[in-house]
């Protein structure tokens, strides 16, 4: 009996040693070389896996930087700090990165929207957008907050039925742009902390706009006549952000001429 127990123990021990040796050998032999830079970049990235850079996740982006030479400044949540850290790891210079931030092209709070009807359906913008007559304006914000659900950074609030972006928290991932069924949120390059934005998306003529909204753009073209930065698209002005330089372009005259106060400074307060 004793010899059986001793033999059993000895055989298990020998087997364990043998298997351990084989696996240890295989571990060295089949070692997969992972570029240390990929590991370092993965650590430098915020790890939010938001997809804002255009890759599936932070690890994919790190691999793309090292293997395919992707730009180091694509990470919106990480911002300049992350870009600098990655640039240091890769030993490259950062191109100047202008952050993109969303702008809501609507400024009417719910009391300023006319011809509203009671809507009792599912309380999401996507559902309400399918129903005619929830409110007079078919372009403006519905205020059910699909964009809030899309935002991972608590950077959107609905105030008085209008989506407002908190630029202190916003990282520019663009999730809200995709979430809005009326496509009134667009990404805009913020060349300084505060820039001008057109806060209306209505393409209707002035009469129809003033029928359904107290504040909407009536398409008077005053801005386009006074500044070459503005062009009319349908009946709504569009700012040429490519050439727009918020530091040097003086927009005082345009702001003065706009009868509906449709041009609004957006962005964060400089702290």
């Amino acid at each position: 009996m004793t010899i059986t127990i001793i033999l059993a123990a000895a055989i298990m021990l020998i087997l364990a040693l043998l298997m351990g040796y084989v696996l240890g050998w295989a571990n060295v032999k089949f070692h997969v070389f992972v570029d240390p830079r990929i590991t370092a970049i993965s650590k430098a990235l915020p790890g939010a896996n938001c997809g804002g850079c255009g890759y599936v996740g932070c690890n994919e982006y790190a691999e793309a930087i090292v293997n395919d030479g992707a730009d180091v400044n694509l990470c919106a949540p990480g911002g300049d700090g992350t870009a600098e850290a990655i640039a240091e790891i890769m030993g490259v210079e950062i191109g100047s990165s202008i952050p993109s931030r969303p702008v809501v092209h609507c400024s009417a709070i719910s009391s300023q929207r006319l011809k509203q009807n009671e809507y009792l359906g599912e309380q999401t913008c996507t559902a309400a957008n399918l129903v005619a007559g929830v409110q007079g304006c078919v372009y403006g914000c519905l205020g059910f907050g699909d964009c809030i659900d899309a935002c991972d950074y608590h950077a959107i609030k609905i105030i008085d039925g209008l989506a407002q972006i908190d630029y202190q928290n916003c990282v520019g991932c663009g999730a809200c742009v995709k979430a809005c069924p009326r496509n009134i949120i667009s990404m805009v390059p913020f060349k300084s902390n505060k820039i001008l934005a057109v806060k209306c998306a209505s393409k209707d003529f002035g009469k129809e706009v003033s029928d359904v909204c107290e504040v909407g753009c009536i398409g008077c073209k005053a801005c386009a006549k006074n500044s070459e930065r503005f062009t009319m698209d349908g009946n709504v002005p569009v700012i040429d952000y490519e050439n727009y330089d918020p530091e040097n372009d003086s927009m005082d005259i345009v702001l003065e001429k706009c009868p509906r106060e449709m041009l609004i400074w957006v962005g964060r307060d400089v702290s």
């Binding site: 010899i3 059986t4 033999l7 059993a8 055989i11 298990m12 087997l15 364990a16 298997m19 084989v22 696996l23 295989a26």
Partner: peptide, 22 residues
């Protein structure tokens, strides 16, 4: 007669786990 059949199961599991690792 030394009978180590009691070790069958544990040895098999052990062998399988090692070869899967490999």
């Amino acid at each position: 007669v030394v009978d180590l059949s009691i070790l069958n199961y544990i040895v098999y599991i052990f062998v399988i786990a090692s070869s899967v690792q490999f």
